[in-house]
Design a protein around this nucleic acid. Structure first.
Lengths: 232, 232
DNA sequence: TCCTTGATTATGTAGCTACATAAAAATAAT
DNA sequence: ATTATTTTTATGTAGCTACATAATCAAGGA
């Protein structure tokens, strides 16, 4: 007869349970996929999928020939979703507003060049804009856009549409880089976000590439109290 | 004869390219997996794997019977790795140091209860500790540990080993929740981190569960200048 | 002893088939 | 017309086989 079909998620959970209850302690070697498959009465494919998932989430480590080991130092691997700012605001139930502060072609400053991993200076458009939630400042973004990769941005009416939105829709990236930190608001930023100079702000630096070509680099200054959420 | 074997990653990249070059624009419906498979001369399984990956990274959306569509509002999905603090410090090349500030059984305060999604008050251990990098303050952690889920923590010598490390090694979680924000350092925290009151700090709130049982909730105050990195 | 080379082996991946499942579309019943 | 039911269909998943690949281990040679 045949055992019940079991999904790889069930198998994953059972293996995870065995790790949690110390059947397999940190550092221990797990049996070969084939053996586990036999033990569970399922196909090796299924075990492989389960193992792959456990490996992805950082609970185990797998090496060809070396076998599977329970990680001694499991990492917390969280998924961070960064949506378009407008959608984020609207999802919270607030009315979204947008305001262009400045837009001009400028030579690429040194620090931006570094972030873009760009040696040759390329023409760029600098766009500063404010995102509002219920008419209150929400995020101030200071953005540099490559005019080599995205020259069409020059024809976009940035007083009406945010570069954020236009780029995300029209210039999909293949790679990006995030940097999250806190700063004290200086005079200018404080005024922009209608807060006090010196208040602590969460800043999100994001740079995107398509292939090796640079698209854009943004520094987003969030309003005091802003929180980034993640989970698994 | 047979076409060359192709990996699902190649297939994924080719499909992604077609999306990037607007063969399939945002909102467009992609052909059925089977048709793409035929077009590419590979098995449907391979296309399925490729599609699954594109779906995971937020570029496309898939629905049974509904088919596959290019997302109109692609999300940036980043993976955030949060290692054990000691390893993070050591990886940066600095010497790690640890210092227990306080450790006591306390009734569970209201805000912690909320974070733990805990209705009934349970006995908890509060642990405050400082992580050092090259003898300088690096992260100050304010932690609440459930004595129901992790009673063994009472037997751990927390003056020598950090609760962070002990928990991560001994109490694997099945779920966690992250919250990242910025605060201005108050007197106490400033002193702890050897910085000025009012400086902007990145704070990481992390709560973990095993099943529905709560394990711990930590608030980590990072030293000024601390950065969280993520990428895809 | 050290280095190279080759065999071994556990995981990784592709292709196939078969069936499950959700959702849309078509049809029947009210 | 509107609702309920059935059929259709595209994705999702499991199991199988076959082969690829990387890491390890063992054997052989300088």
């Amino acid at each position: 007869m045949n055992a019940e079909r079991q999904s790889w998620k069930e198998v994953r959970d059972r293996i995870r349970d065995q790790i949690l209850d110390r059947t397999y302690a940190p550092g221990d070697k797990l049996p070969r996929d084939a053996d586990i498959a036999e033990q569970f009465g399922c196909a090796r494919t299924t075990v492989q999928r389960a193992m792959q998932d456990l490996s992805d989430t950082g609970l185990i480590e797998r090496k060809r020939k070396g076998g599977t080991h329970v990680r001694t130092d499991p990492v917390s691997r969280a998924t961070l979703d960064i949506p378009i700012t407008r959608l984020e605001v609207e999802k919270s139930g607030a009315t979204y507003g947008y305001q262009l502060i400045d837009r001009r072609k400028l030579p690429m400053p040194r620090d931006i060049a570094a972030k873009l991993e760009q040696v040759e200076p390329i023409p760029m458009l600098r766009v500063q804009a404010l995102h509002l939630a219920d008419h209150n400042p929400h995020i101030f973004e200071d953005r540099w856009v490559s005019l080599e990769t995205a020259p069409e941005i020059l024809d976009v009416d940035l007083t009406r549409y945010s570069a954020n939105e236009w780029l995300v829709r029209n210039k999909p990236y293949t790679r990006f880089d995030l940097r999250i930190y806190a700063i004290s608001a200086d005079e200018k930023i404080a005024k922009m976000l209608a807060t006090e100079p010196g208040s602590a702000l969460l800043v999100i630096d994001r740079t995107t590439w398509i292939g090796t070509a640079t698209i854009t680099s943004v520094r987003s200054f969030t309003v005091p109290g802003y929180q980034l959420l993640a989970s698994n």
